[in-house]
Design a binder for these strands. Structure first.
Lengths: 148, 148
DNA sequence: CCATCTCACATAAGCAACTTATATAAATCG
DNA sequence: CGATTTATATAAGTTGCTTATGTGAGATGG
């Protein structure tokens, strides 16, 4: 791709870059065999704390029975736990176990290591440019998430 | 004159930002119901041109029978075409049809629109910072892809 | 050349993870 | 308190992957 020389942000170029990263990230070979949805649920629970099943259906964009079954599998494998909601006896709170959190953290460390290693091959100017853009990118990602 | 700020790139922050974008991007509701692998194959074929089935197994990280079956479905739906390889009568070249390319382009336009809309809510400084980082990010993504 | 090995793809059978439809039990509401 | 809504579970079917194996074309060594 050839980014245009211009001060304003070109959404087209940004989309291209993000797509490349996404494809590379997702295809990263991981030792543990988990589906994307599984990893996403573990990630969500790790970062947001215990949640209801119904809350997960909206964050993960899958149906409620799919979440029930997914949590069944995760619970069977010792990665999450079901806990009664003290405020509502219909509801269940899903919570990651230390084993589940370890998977999330391991994957993350792999990614960070990989990125850090790649960053070393960049020029100082390139590293600086990316570093300077991170707060703005973070804000943009947060806005994107809020839209749903 | 201003001394160059040697602001190092924090791989941890970069990983966080990328993860957020990935999750938001992937969960974007798309009118057409296609799996991630399907979209990825269409994307690859659109950008790289006709490819062999075996070449797709490596880019998509799925087994050869899975590619055969996926191409069967895509061909049935008119999104790709099988074509004999003139140089090797064992081989098949898979090629996107206009209908397949349209799906890729529509999805891309949705993403670009969404990013452009979000960018409008950023400050000019933030937009500038992201724009300035794009070439470096693109190079990084390319390096990442080469590693496989 | 020709037997054999390798390569590119297809087929078969099984399984995992999703879907829609429906059931159950608790909470809310008029 | 009966009716409705809400949170989750269960059932049955479908999809898209997996491993194992088959088939025909290209490469290779005696």
């Amino acid at each position: 791709m050839t980014p245009r020389r211009r001060q304003e942000l070109d959404a087209d170029d940004l989309a291209t870059v993000l797509e490349e990263f996404i494809r590379s990230f997702i295809r990263l070979p991981s030792a543990e065999r988990h589906t994307f949805t599984t990893l996403s649920v573990l990630h969500t629970l790790t970062h947001r704390g215990p949640m209801r099943l119904t809350a997960l259906t909206t964050t993960e964009q899958i149906t409620q029975p799919a979440v029930t079954q997914l949590v069944d599998r995760l619970e069977r494998d010792g990665l999450v736990e079901r806990r009664p909601d003290p405020d509502d006896r219909r509801a269940v709170l899903v919570q990651v176990t230390p084993a589940g959190a370890r998977i999330v953290h391991t994957r993350r460390r792999d990614r960070v290591d990989r990125l850090a290693r790649l960053a070393e091959t960049l020029t100082p100017e390139e590293r600086h440019a990316i570093g300077a853009a991170l707060p703005a990118l973070a804000r943009m990602a947060a806005l994107m998430d809020d839209e749903r």
